[in-house]
Design a protein around this nucleic acid. Structure first.
Lengths: 125, 125
DNA sequence: CGGGATCCGATCTGATACTG
DNA sequence: CAGTATCAGATCGGATCCCG
């Protein structure tokens, strides 16, 4: 029984996802405190350096950005490109497979709006 | 600053989701160790009692089923219907808004397949 | 600049036992 | 049947300091 591979920062991104429902697999890959935000940010800016990425993501710490980027890279969701320069320069961007995930975003956003509307209705009066 | 409302079993389902990316909101609602599995199961069986649900979800404990169902109910994703009988009888089903989420499932599943194919390629040789 | 290492509290989850 | 209560361990996330 292999334990976990590395330090995962994701609560459901574990090996026990042997469900017959593959949708869970996908959501697991993007579940993580900052992953969707990172993906979203990279999708709008194409390529960003570490500090740029951090500056675009309110509230994230270096540590978490590092960890989440590592996981995303390990999962082939993000590409890390190192330029052998001084000072060092590292650029992050989305992989093609991740870009294929972006068309789903609007559907998720629309559902969020609908759901929010419903819930606030319930809370009125 | 309101803290958390209840016991959330979800690591990213917190109040700090004030991102400009609503897709995160949606994923948060279904992120949780067993939530998607519960939704998936209820989507195929329409209505299930507590024990039935548990029997369909391999590995879940009563405790976790209770907790996740509570959160799903609080978020209006699941309906809990109690029949005043002896022995007690409780039926769970999806809300309409949750059913509107199901059309997204196939896209997520297809991405999972693609991604898995890519990753296994990388691992070969 | 782009991280890594460490510490530690907050959170999540499982096991077990119990109940109206 | 449909849960609840309690405890312990695993995991996560933030803060802080350090480095080539």
């Amino acid at each position: 029984m292999t334990k976990r591979k590395e330090n995962s920062t994701n609560s459901i991104n574990r090996e026990y996802i042997t469900t017959n429902c593959d949708a869970i697999y996908t959501v697991c890959k993007i579940s993580g405190r900052w992953k969707m935000k990172i993906i979203y940010t990279l999708s709008t800016y194409e390529t960003l350096r570490f500090n740029e990425l951090r500056d675009h993501i309110q509230g994230i710490t270096d540590r978490m950005l590092t960890l989440q980027l590592k996981e995303l890279e390990a999962d082939s969701l993000v590409v890390r490109k190192v330029f052998p320069e001084v000072p060092p320069r590292v650029e992050y961007s989305l992989t093609d497979i991740t870009k294929e995930l972006l068309p789903i975003w609007p559907a998720l956003e629309q559902w969020a709006e609908k759901h929010r509307a419903l819930v606030s209705e319930d809370n009125e009066e």
